[in-house]
Amino acid sequence: METNATTSENLNLYEKAENYTKTSLDLIKLKTVSATADALSTVTSRIAVGAVVAFFTAFLNIGISLWIGKVLGEYYYGFFIIALFYLIVAILLHKTQHKLIKTPIGNMIISSILKDSKN
């Protein structure tokens, strides 16, 4: 009689463990899908905004170059001045890339990962 009760309890325990494992796997799958969807939607929206900003910047630079060139008498002078401006900006960014770019982006990624792991 005792062996039947023990066998029944073991089967019940086995079923509970199996259900727990299946539920845990389903939860992991859902969290993965949620994180992937969130990442893809964020990347997609940032690409869209970046494209609009890039077009705006390109047309603004062409307009400023033409205006400076008209003021100086030759249109290509304006383009040279704008190119020199971007060369100076690139040099400054290269010199300060850790402070201005790497550290803030790294901190943002770490805080995003830690925020997701707390939930």
Rank of each mutant, 00 (worst) to 15 (best):
E2V: 03
T3V: 12
T3K: 10
T7P: 00
T7Q: 13
T7W: 05
N10F: 13
L11A: 08
Y14D: 04
E15D: 11
E15R: 03
E15T: 06
E15N: 02
E15Q: 08
K16L: 11
N19M: 06
N19A: 15
T21K: 14
K22Y: 09
S24Y: 10
L25T: 01
L27E: 07
L30E: 15
T32H: 01
T32R: 12
V33N: 02
V33I: 10
A35T: 11
A35M: 03
D38R: 09
D38T: 12
A39S: 05
S45G: 01
S45P: 00
I47S: 00
A48W: 06
V49L: 03
G50S: 08
V53C: 02
V53M: 08
F55I: 12
F55W: 07
T57E: 12
G63F: 15
G63K: 10
L66N: 09
K70M: 03
V71I: 15
V71Q: 14
G73P: 00
E74A: 09
Y75L: 12
Y76N: 08
F79S: 12
F80R: 04
I81K: 05
I82E: 04
F85M: 05
F85G: 02
F85P: 00
L87E: 01
I91T: 12
I91Q: 07
I101L: 13
T103Q: 13
I105M: 15
G106L: 02
N107T: 04
I113S: 02
N119A: 03
N119Y: 14
